[in-house]
């Protein structure tokens, strides 16, 4: 490494501080907004320093919101995010296991059927997917929020790649030790995939939490809204002043769980992100 010295180091730090400031400013401003009173926000320009209304704004958002309490929407988001993460992991690890460790008729057909989904995100087939969900009576339900979004092969692909790196002798040793396929999966493969599974869970949790278009369509009853959808509906339109402080409190609440995941599980998050894109 060629080290920078003196003025160069200072300039690099300055650039980074400036970058961090620009990146964090919108979130900081939202936080400031969530601590101000209605009048303070409307005074032009609004203060750039937190005010004293934090507790009031947040409790109002959590308990009442504008249509539905944010607490309820946070719960919906949590169910959806965990449902998507867990559901995708379960179906993916099982099917990857079948594809890597078994030989059976139509194996390649199953492989391609699953991996075709890598090509097309839900946004592309949104209208017919909506119709399918509607005809199955899944509107305004958790299964409607979750199931269509787990029809994707990204996690399957990841598990397949991982299984291919597990030494073959491990499976052979297990067979000689008397383990059948179910036992090998449970005792050896599952524990070995632990880190990968955790990393994948972190990424899928954020993915599920941040979904927008699909929950927008599939939930029509406000009490089924996820917090990201609810936030859009809480947002005052251009010509009315609405309730910005409560909206901003809701915005901060909406980003807290995924931010906590990114910050506190940073190692797993980075591993998951980089590996899921390979």
């Amino acid at each position: 490494m060629v080290e920078r010295r003196g003025i160069g180091t200072i300039l690099t730090h300055l650039a980074l501080i400036l970058g961090v400031a620009v990146l964090c400013f919108p979130i900081y401003l939202a936080f400031v907004g969530s601590t101000l009173s209605h009048d303070e926000i409307l005074s032009v320009p609004m203060p750039l320093w937190p005010g004293g209304q934090m507790v009031e704004n947040y409790s109002q958002a959590l308990a009442a919101g504008t249509q539905v309490p944010v607490a309820r929407m946070l719960f919906n988001s949590m169910v959806m995010a965990i449902g998507i993460a867990a559901g995708k992991i379960i179906i993916s690890i099982l099917s990857a296991y079948a594809i890597v460790y078994f030989r059976f008729p139509f194996r390649m057909l199953a492989f391609w059927a699953i991996f075709m989904t890598l090509m097309l995100p839900v946004e592309v087939r949104i209208v017919p997917t909506y119709e399918v969900a509607a005809s199955l009576g899944m509107l305004n339900s958790y299964s409607g929020l979750i199931l269509p979004l787990i029809a994707s092969a990204t996690a399957t692909f990841l598990y397949r790649q991982f299984f291919l790196t597990v030494p073959e002798e491990l499976a052979e040793a297990a067979r000689v030790d008397g383990a059948g396929p179910v036992r090998f999966f449970k005792d050896i493969l599952l524990p070995l995939s632990r880190t990968n599974t955790a990393a994948l869970f972190v990424i899928l949790f954020i993915y599920g939490w941040n979904q927008y278009l699909w929950p927008l369509l599939v939930t029509t009853r406000p009490e089924m809204n996820t917090v990201v959808i609810g936030l859009q509906q809480m947002m005052p339109s251009a010509d009315d002043y609405g309730n910005w402080p409560v909206t901003m409190a809701a915005a901060i609440l909406a980003i807290l769980p995924p931010v906590a995941v990114v910050v506190f599980m940073q190692r797993l998050f980075i591993k998951g992100l980089i590996e899921s894109e390979k």
Binding site: L16, G19, V20, L23, C24, F25, P26, I27, L29, A30, G33, I206, W209, N210, Q211, Y212, V228, I229, L231, Q232, M235, W244, T247, M248, A251, A254, I255, P258, V259, V261, V262, V263, Q266, F269, I270
Partner: peptide, 23 residues
Amino acid sequence: YKTLIIWPYAVAPAVAGVMWIFM
């Protein structure tokens, strides 16, 4: 620096929209 730069990843696009509108 790394942590401060990567955490906005957690912000949903729609929430980003709301925050930028506010600004």
